[in-house]
């Protein structure tokens, strides 16, 4: 069963709908005690990373999240929260990954937000990308990106520059794209996570 961390950052209807379609059980985590009921977790998130971090801090769950030993997946802004810092409002984040979330630099003919389907290339062997061919398209929509880092980047994509489409360290995972909106390969990734 997946516990979805509830902290009021964005809508989770599409995520729970995808889990239901796939027959993956889930519940909500509102308090530290709720964490015990689940064997893995998703940190969702849409919108502003600094604002999302403040909301997460208000739940009081931050120390418990940082101490998690079970598989934990951050999605979009939920992934950015796992990094040390975001240029969005100069915010300090969870620092589970000692890397940064940066704003896309302005470059002619490259629009921001990075919106649409882009190719993702896994760079390491990991069950999260099992049965997902190299270069499969996933749906992105974001104005800030997580820097590329050989130690922590699990898969990369390129837009303006090469950056982390997903990150991985121990039990923590993050994906910048929206698996719940990424067609059949997005569903494969969610299924893979449910079995890690």
């Amino acid at each position: 069963m997946i516990g979805i961390i509830r902290y009021g950052a964005g809508n989770i209807f599409s995520l729970t709908a995808a889990l239901e379609r796939l027959g993956i059980g889930y519940g909500m985590v509102n308090t530290e005690a709720d964490l015990l009921q689940f064997d893995r977790y998703i940190i969702p998130g849409v919108g502003h990373a600094g604002a999302a971090m403040r909301k997460l801090e208000q739940t009081g769950l931050v120390p418990a999240i940082k101490a998690l030993k079970k598989p934990t997946l951050g999605i979009c802004v939920g992934m950015q929260l796992l990094t040390a810092y975001s240029e969005e409002a100069d915010a300090n984040l969870l620092n589970l990954f000692p890397i940064k979330t940066l704003k896309f630099p302005h470059k002619n003919s490259f629009k921001v937000p990075h919106t649409g389907w882009n190719q993702v290339f896994a760079e390491k062997e990991n069950p999260l990308f099992e049965n997902i061919p190299l270069g499969s398209h996933f749906y992105f929509v974001h104005s800030y990106f997580i820097e590329y880092d050989q130690s922590f980047t699990l898969s990369s994509t390129s837009y303006i520059n090469k950056f982390s489409a997903s990150i991985w360290h121990d039990n923590f995972y993050g994906v910048q794209f929206h698996p719940e909106k990424s067609g059949p390969y997005g569903e494969t990734l969610l299924k893979n996570f449910s079995k890690i």
Binding site: F13, A18, Y139
Partner: peptide, 11 residues
């Protein structure tokens, strides 16, 4: 919108 979001896996 709810019916679409329940059943469709694209934006």
């Amino acid at each position: 919108v709810k019916s679409v979001a329940r059943q469709i896996n694209i934006p």
